[in-house]
Computed example of a mutant assay.
Amino acid sequence: MAGSVPDSLPYDGGWCAMGRDVLTRPALPPPCTERYGRHGEHVVEVWPAPRARAPVVLVVHGGFWRAAYDRRHLRPMAHALASRGYMVVVPEYRRTGAGGGWPGTFDDIAAATDAVGPLALRYGADPARQVWAGHSAGGHLVLWAAARHRLPVRSRWHRPPAGAGVLCLAGCTSLGLAALWDLDGGAVRALLGGAPARVPQRYALADPGWLLPAGVRARLLHGTADAQVPLAMSRAYAARARRLGDAVTLEELPGAGHFAPIDPRSPAWPRVLAAVADLADTGAPAGPGVRSADH
Rank of each mutant, 00 (worst) to 15 (best):
residue 87 M to C: 04
residue 90 V to C: 14
residue 115 A to G: 12
residue 119 L to W: 14
residue 111 A to C: 07
residue 139 G to H: 06
residue 123 Y to R: 01
residue 140 H to R: 07
residue 145 A to P: 05
residue 144 W to D: 02
residue 155 S to M: 00
residue 93 Y to G: 07
residue 149 H to M: 00
residue 135 H to N: 12
residue 103 P to R: 03
residue 115 A to I: 02
residue 111 A to I: 04
residue 99 G to P: 00
residue 150 R to C: 01
residue 87 M to K: 01
residue 98 A to L: 05
residue 121 L to E: 15
residue 152 P to T: 12
residue 104 G to Y: 14
residue 155 S to A: 07
residue 112 A to T: 12
residue 90 V to N: 05
residue 93 Y to I: 01
residue 125 A to P: 03
residue 92 E to A: 12
residue 157 W to N: 13
residue 138 G to Y: 01
residue 105 T to K: 10
residue 152 P to W: 05
residue 130 Q to M: 10
residue 128 A to Q: 15
residue 126 D to G: 13
residue 132 W to G: 11
residue 113 T to A: 06
residue 126 D to R: 10
residue 92 E to D: 15
residue 153 V to Y: 12
residue 128 A to W: 08
residue 113 T to K: 05
residue 99 G to W: 02
residue 115 A to E: 09
residue 93 Y to V: 04
residue 101 G to K: 04
residue 155 S to D: 04
residue 117 G to Q: 08
residue 123 Y to H: 12
residue 106 F to G: 00
residue 141 L to C: 00
residue 94 R to W: 03
residue 115 A to M: 11
residue 145 A to S: 10
residue 154 R to W: 06
residue 128 A to I: 10
residue 139 G to K: 01
residue 137 A to S: 14
residue 133 A to R: 05
residue 101 G to V: 07
residue 144 W to M: 09
residue 138 G to D: 04
residue 88 V to N: 06
residue 130 Q to C: 10
residue 127 P to D: 11
residue 141 L to R: 05
residue 106 F to N: 13
residue 139 G to A: 01
residue 90 V to H: 08
residue 149 H to A: 03
residue 146 A to I: 00
residue 131 V to R: 00
residue 120 A to I: 10
residue 129 R to Y: 06
residue 154 R to P: 01
residue 90 V to T: 08
residue 88 V to K: 13
residue 141 L to T: 01
residue 123 Y to E: 00
residue 102 W to I: 10
residue 131 V to C: 05
residue 151 L to C: 02
residue 116 V to T: 12
residue 98 A to F: 02
residue 113 T to Q: 09
residue 114 D to G: 15
residue 113 T to I: 13
residue 135 H to D: 01
